[in-house]
Each structure stands twice: as C-alpha cells, then as structure tokens.
C-alpha cells in the first residue's frame, strides 16, 4: 500500500512536470537571446537574459491593435453567448413546459450534426458578415455542452423560492432575473470563463472570414508568425502576407506568453467555480 501511494504520487508529479514543461520552455525562450535558442541552449532557464524581445513586440502597433480586437471580440461574444445560453437553458429547465422536449431536441441535434464548413462559409458571406466582427462572435454563440450544463444547474435549484415568488405574483421574467440569476453565480462564472476562453482562443473564424490584418485577433497574428517561421508554410500563410523574413523563435515565444497571460491570470480565481459548476451540473439533472 505504501509503495503504491509513493508510486502514485511520483506518477502524478511527473505528470505535472510534463504538463508544465512547454510553458516553462516558452517562458525561458521569451527572455533568451535568439542566438542561444538557435544553438539549442534554452530549456528551463533563460540564456542570455534580456527583455529586448518584449520591448520589441510591445512596440509593435499591429500587435496591440490585434490584441485589442481579441479583447473586443471576447467581450462582445461572451455577452451575446451568455444571453442566449442563459435564457435558453432556463426555459429548458422548466419540466412542465409544453414542447420542452422539442426545444431540447432542436439544440442537441446540432451537437451531432452540423452544416459543415462550406455551407457555413457560404452563409456568412451571403449575410455580408465577412470582414466584420459578427462573423467571429455570432456563429458559435451557443455551445450545446454549456447549455446542457446550465440547464441541469437550473433544474437543481431549490424549487420553493421560485414557487413562493410565483405566488407573490412575479412573472417568469421577474423570477429569472431576481431569483434564479442571483442564485446561479457559480455556473455563470463558469460559463463566462468557458465562453471567454473560447473567443479568446479562436483563430479559425478570423482566418476564414477576415482579410484585413487590422481586424485580426491576436491568435491570428501569432499564427501568421508561426506559419511564416516554419520553413514550409501552409497555403494560408501566403494569403496572410504579413511575414517578410523568418521570425525568430524568441519573438514567437513572447507573443505566445502575452497571449496566454490573461487566461493564466483569471484561471486560478475562476477555477474553484468551474469545478463546482461543472460538477454540480454533471452529477445529475
């Protein structure tokens, strides 16, 4: 038993090391000189420590512009997604509602069958959304997984408060806004985290629908750096046309660090919510 405990702990520590190693390397590279990286000297500790790369990236106007776009898309997208998901999940959580199963089915079906990338592209183009923010924020505004987690969270809320409010003459709007939402902080925090991470990380919608680099989110900026740096860039890189020469690894590293920092910063604070939020939602409906 003792041996098992120790082996188990060792395995888990090893796992953590594997999970963290890529972060550590990138962090070390971001403070290292390009020459040291090229020579293969940088692993866990910076070699030729400097912050010049940070200064260089941070003085790049396009970087900040794209960073700002990411913030904008994330805020707007999350607001829309939360509105749609919360209201729909609340409706679906009402077991007495006539037609409820059809409403659930309509959403769940989209989980298992989707139109596919080409019809989506045609739709977005014909709605005139190309080269606008809406192509990024609208198409993915309801995640069915999130919807179902929220629905079961609402189903598990104590019924008596809602019933009491109903007797007091409050309509569904009032119950939803004044009673249900204040009780749902954990799940709301979780969903805000999930959606904002989704929008923050998204690059493909931008890659597909945006042609102007001043509209790009920072992930696409980073992708073009990486694609430009890899010797055999894929077809898309040529279209992006933002890369002139090989971009050195330390610039990529700095951009990666600056892109993940917001996620790393909010993660510890929201984590306790999402563990309880998801677990509560998933244990049973």
């Amino acid at each position: 038993m003792r041996v098992f405990r120790a082996a188990n702990a060792a395995a888990l520590v090893l796992l953590c090391a594997v999970m963290l190693y890529p972060f550590i390397t990138v962090l070390a590279q971001s403070f290292s000189s390009a020459g040291a990286i090229k020579a293969g000297q940088v692993n866990v500790w910076p070699v030729g420590f400097n912050v010049d790369t940070y200064t260089a990236v941070m003085s790049n106007g396009m970087f900040w512009r794209n960073y700002g776009n990411t913030v904008l898309y994330t805020v707007v997208g999350t607001a829309i997604a939360m509105t749609l998901t919360t209201t729909y999940a609340y409706v679906l959580s009402k077991r007495h509602l006539k037609g409820r199963n059809a409403l659930i089915g309509i959403a769940v079906f989209t989980m298992f069958f989707n139109g596919g990338i080409v019809p989506n592209y045609v739709l977005i183009s014909s709605l005139g959304m190309k080269n606008t923010m809406w192509a990024i924020v609208l198409p993915n505004a309801i995640s069915v997984f999130n919807l179902l987690v929220m629905k079961s969270f609402f189903e598990n809320l104590p019924k008596d408060l809602e019933e009491a409010a109903q007797i007091d003459g409050l309509g569904w709007y009032g119950i939803f806004a004044r009673i249900v939402l204040p009780l749902s902080k954990a799940v709301i925090a979780t969903m805000v985290l999930f959606y904002s991470v989704q929008y923050w990380n998204d690059w493909f919608a931008a890659f597909l629908y945006l042609d102007k680099s001043e509209l790009f989110p920072v992930t696409l900026f980073l992708r073009n750096l990486i694609a430009g740096a890899s010797t055999s860039a894929s077809e898309g890189a040529a279209a992006a046309g933002t890369t002139t020469a090989l971009v050195s690894t330390n610039i990529q590293a700095v951009t990666m660090i600056l892109t993940v920092i917001p996620i790393l910063c909010i993660y510890p604070f929201v984590q306790r919510y999402f563990v309880s939020g998801v677990m509560l939602g998933s244990i049973k409906g």
Binding site: T85, T87, Y88, G115
Partner: peptide
C-alpha cells in the same frame, strides 16, 4: 425567452444544414 436563441439556432445552425 426562448425566441432569440431559437432564431439564432435557425440561422446559424440549421441554415448551414
């Protein structure tokens, strides 16, 4: 309350289908 989400699903999920 279900109206907006349904419109969304109709356009962006069922439209491409």
């Amino acid at each position: 309350l279900a109206l907006l989400p349904l419109i969304f699903l109709a356009i962006f999920k069922y439209g491409p289908m």
